[in-house]
Design a protein around this nucleic acid. Structure first.
Lengths: 187, 187, 187, 187
DNA sequence: CATGAATGAGCTTTCATTCAT
DNA sequence: CATGAATGAAAGCTCATTCAT
């Protein structure tokens, strides 16, 4: 009786591959259609069934976190570098992510409340904390600057990005914003 | 061609009342459930039928604009005052709105793209422009400050508010943010 | 309290004028947007309130009938002419109405079932009946032709009009259809 | 993000079954309530959720086409028979469909404009064309009859069916109509 | 009598989630 | 384990109809 044609079932080996495909698809779809895009669209973009999506990521937030995770992994790699310039590179990359991946911003805002239940909120501070002192010891950054200040500046940059009308205006506005902040932090 | 058992009909006289009720309901519902809250929830909260909502505000944006409008009217009233202190009061109130009505922020973000088609984007700059010179002439504000700077600072404050985890943290964070900006602008 | 601005209320004298405006509007709107066009659109097109429409025409069918009525009045005027050529002119005009006013056709189809409750179905036969014998006596039409045949031919022409893909094709198709019917009836 | 208490799920195996049920339901509902009947009524009649209807038939027209398709399949089967009588049987069946399935007629009228975008309009002519010559060669049909004539006669029959007041009257009226057409085509 | 706003049922459409295969 | 169809609860939106003014 069952004459329902199926696509191949590549077996358990495909699981990690599917997971990666889903995360990539999620980033693309979230970026293109916003954080509230249909999950089915993400499954389709990833080329997998919807069931697979649910197996890997029971909730939309889980998927969002996985996307964040990739970025965090990158930032953590930078922070792990032992030299005094790590903080500067970390800040640079953070700024870039903030400016370039507007979906990153939107997703963060959309999940803000839920994020409180995760450790995400603590990871970025930790990275700053881990690298800032070394930079200050090397005289690369004023001693008066606290990790809290850095995070606050990033939130302010968020604000500029989030409220920008056009993509073109963003970079200039961010530069001016950092300018207003004086020498507190350079982009 | 539906049979229509109906309830009451307060008549056309209810129109302005309904309009006001809808705007108020929209503000509440947007604040509580976000800008993408069901319009039906707004109609219900306002105690009117869905048709009434659509008659008054054909699109979600129309409703958002009406909510904005109330705030703008208030700001414009402040800006219309002729004394040198108008700018300070305008900025104070703007800061308050930004901090207190987080829905105001979210709505602005959500409608940003559509807002480009309206004149809303120009109205706030105009208010700043109209009041800033007088404040500078009176020595209340540094001459180096431009209207553009003021708007940028507001966007930065937006960022702090938008990314705040809890409502409690907001005020303090904003204060610190303004502190980082040095004497550029006082809350 | 009631500060609801209204348009002028021209009093009872305006009633017949409104009625006519509604019928005209109905013809236009039905033609443009189909028989199921919103009644509100008709009221608006007529420049009257919706209440007026309901006062004059309680149901959509009443409005349709009024539109029909205008055409019937014209046909009845033709049929009332005493000469032998009346039938020919009646048929000519009927054919024209059938071909040109496709909304007339659509409306008739849409209201077919309801129309059975009216006397509309009998009026056209009556006109044929009243004029056909005179034409036959004058030798203008074959004696074998019955009123029933005439009506049947009209329904066949309806079919051709109703199923035409483009407006351009209609006239030619009708001509060919009448040709197939031989000399039974000339357009 | 709705909570979803669910009932049963017959699984993907139900797909073809559902598809068939939807087409059957569509035929029934279109016949009973007209082509513009609520799609929800069709889903209900088919005993499936609304989503299933939309998955199988994204638009109302898709559903209509599927219904048409069944009839066409039947007619094409007849036309595929190689004997000289195929045309006669094709015409007979076409006449029957026209007379019996008045929804078929109505649907065709309602979708006429959209149908122009499909190949449906060409398929019937093709069937006539394919079978008529053989019948003429066998002397079963006058040589003067063209495929175009056949289609025109069908449209005329359409007209009679479409304008019939009661179902009872239809057969007799069609017979008389074909009679008026002389020996052009026999039912 | 005319006006046109209010009402709310009803329909279309979309998706999150489940689950038979 | 993967697939992708089924499910059905929302929403959005439209209009026929009523009725206060």
């Amino acid at each position: 009786m069952p004459k329902v044609p199926r696509r191949s079932n590549r077996g358990p080996a495909a699981a990690p591959e599917n997971r990666r495909a889903l995360i990539d698809a999620a980033r693309r779809v979230f970026a293109q259609r916003g954080y509230l895009a249909p999950l089915s669209a993400i499954a389709q973009e990833a080329g997998v069934g919807q069931g697979v999506l649910y197996r890997h990521f029971p909730t939309r937030l889980d998927l969002a976190l996985a996307v964040f995770e990739q970025h965090f992994a990158e930032l953590e790699a930078i922070a792990a570098e032992p030299d005094a310039g790590a903080f500067g590179r970390l800040w640079s990359r953070l700024l870039e992510l903030t400016v370039e991946e507007s979906a990153f911003v939107e997703m963060f805002l959309a999940t803000r409340r839920d994020l409180a239940q995760t450790d995400l909120a603590d990871r970025l501070p930790a990275l700053i904390q881990a690298t800032l002192p070394r930079a200050q010891a090397a005289g690369l950054v004023p001693d008066s600057l606290t990790a809290s200040d850095v995070l606050l500046v990033q939130r302010m940059v968020y604000g500029v990005v989030a409220t920008s009308i056009s993509d073109d205006e963003v970079r200039d506005a961010v530069t001016r914003a950092l300018g207003l902040l004086g020498g507190v932090l350079e982009g």
